Simulated assay, not measured.
Amino acid sequence: MTGPVLPALRHQLVAAVLTLAAPGLQDDAFDPAPLLATLFGEACDADDPLPWIGHTLRTGEEAALTADLGAALRTLLTTLPPDPRPTDHLHSPAWPPVTTAAARLARTLVANDHHTTD
Rank of each mutant, 00 (worst) to 15 (best):
M1I: 06
T2G: 14
G3F: 12
P4W: 06
P4K: 06
V5T: 12
V5W: 08
V5R: 13
L6K: 07
L6S: 04
P7R: 10
A8G: 06
L9I: 00
L9S: 03
R10H: 02
R10P: 03
R10V: 00
H11V: 08
Q12L: 10
L13E: 00
V14N: 00
A15E: 15
A15V: 08
A16N: 05
V17F: 10
L18M: 13
L18E: 15
L18V: 09
A21T: 06
A22P: 00
Q26D: 04
D27G: 14
D27R: 06
A29T: 14
A29E: 13
A29H: 10
F30D: 14
F30E: 11
F30M: 09
D31Y: 09
P32N: 10
A33H: 12
A33T: 15
L35R: 13
L35E: 02
L36I: 08
L36S: 10
A37K: 06
T38E: 03
T38V: 09
G41S: 01
E42I: 03
D45V: 07
A46E: 04
A46R: 00
D47Q: 08
P49I: 00
P49S: 03
L50K: 02
P51N: 12
W52K: 01
W52T: 04
I53M: 02
I53E: 01
H55D: 11
T56L: 00
T56D: 04
L57M: 02
L57N: 05
L57V: 03
T59Q: 04
G60A: 00
E61P: 03
A63Q: 01
A63E: 01
A64I: 00
L65A: 01
A67Y: 05
D68V: 01
D68Y: 00
A71M: 07
L73Y: 15
R74P: 08
T75L: 08
T78N: 07
T78A: 15
T79Q: 14
T79C: 09
L80R: 11
L80E: 11
L80A: 12
P81R: 07
P82M: 05
P82K: 11
D83I: 08
P84L: 04
T87L: 11
T87M: 13
D88L: 07
D88K: 06
D88V: 10
D88H: 14
H89I: 01
L90I: 11
H91F: 12
W95Y: 13
P96H: 06
P96K: 04
P97H: 01
T99G: 07
T100L: 03
A101R: 07
A101F: 03
L105C: 06
L105I: 03
L105M: 08
A106N: 08
A106I: 02
R107G: 08
R107E: 12
L109N: 03
L109D: 12
V110I: 15
A111M: 07
A111G: 03
A111D: 13
H114D: 14
H114V: 11
H114A: 13
H114Y: 01
H115T: 15
T116L: 06
T116R: 11
T117C: 05
D118M: 09
D118W: 12
